[in-house]
């Protein structure tokens, strides 16, 4: 399935019923050098627009919100060792966590790539 995007600059990619979530390339660029990512624990229930993770640069900490309802099934442990992955490949290897969705229809509320591109240009 093609990636979907939220207004909070998260991306979601659904595969076999599991959604992979990360922050967008635009987000990592505006944050600057990422030094730490606080990831949710596996098993944590996430609520759409609620706190899911924290991403830190040297001078800022930003909350990452859950783009959808669901339960965390995996967190990207590579980010513990190498948070720079988020800068290098935000939308591939720099993913944050995977979740099992409670309501896949919420995906429809997110933007597709073209809409997100327009959204970012409008900022």
């Amino acid at each position: 399935m093609a990636k979907k995007f939220s207004q909070e600059h998260e991306w979601v990619e659904l595969e076999d019923g599991i959604a992979t979530v990360g922050i967008t390339d635009y987000a990592q660029q505006s944050l600057g050098d990422i030094v730490y990512v606080e990831l949710p624990e596996v098993g944590k229930k996430l609520v759409k627009d609620g706190d899911a993770a924290v991403v830190e640069s040297v001078k800022a900490a930003s909350d990452v919100y859950a783009p959808l309802d669901g339960v965390v099934v995996e967190a990207n442990e590579d980010l513990d060792v190498n948070p720079a992955l988020v800068n290098e490949s935000a939308e591939t290897d720099g993913w944050f966590f995977r979740m099992e969705l409670s309501d896949a229809s919420q995906l429809d509320e997110l933007m597709d790539e073209a809409a997100y591109k327009d959204f970012v240009e409008g900022l």
């Binding site: 030094v35 730490y36 830190e56 640069s57 040297v58 001078k59 800022a60 900490a61």
Partner: peptide, 13 residues
């Protein structure tokens, strides 16, 4: 270092 734990950045958090 690790200043993002602190009040001047995280404020109420």
């Amino acid at each position: 270092t690790l200043s993002t734990r602190e009040q001047h950045i995280r404020r109420e958090k």
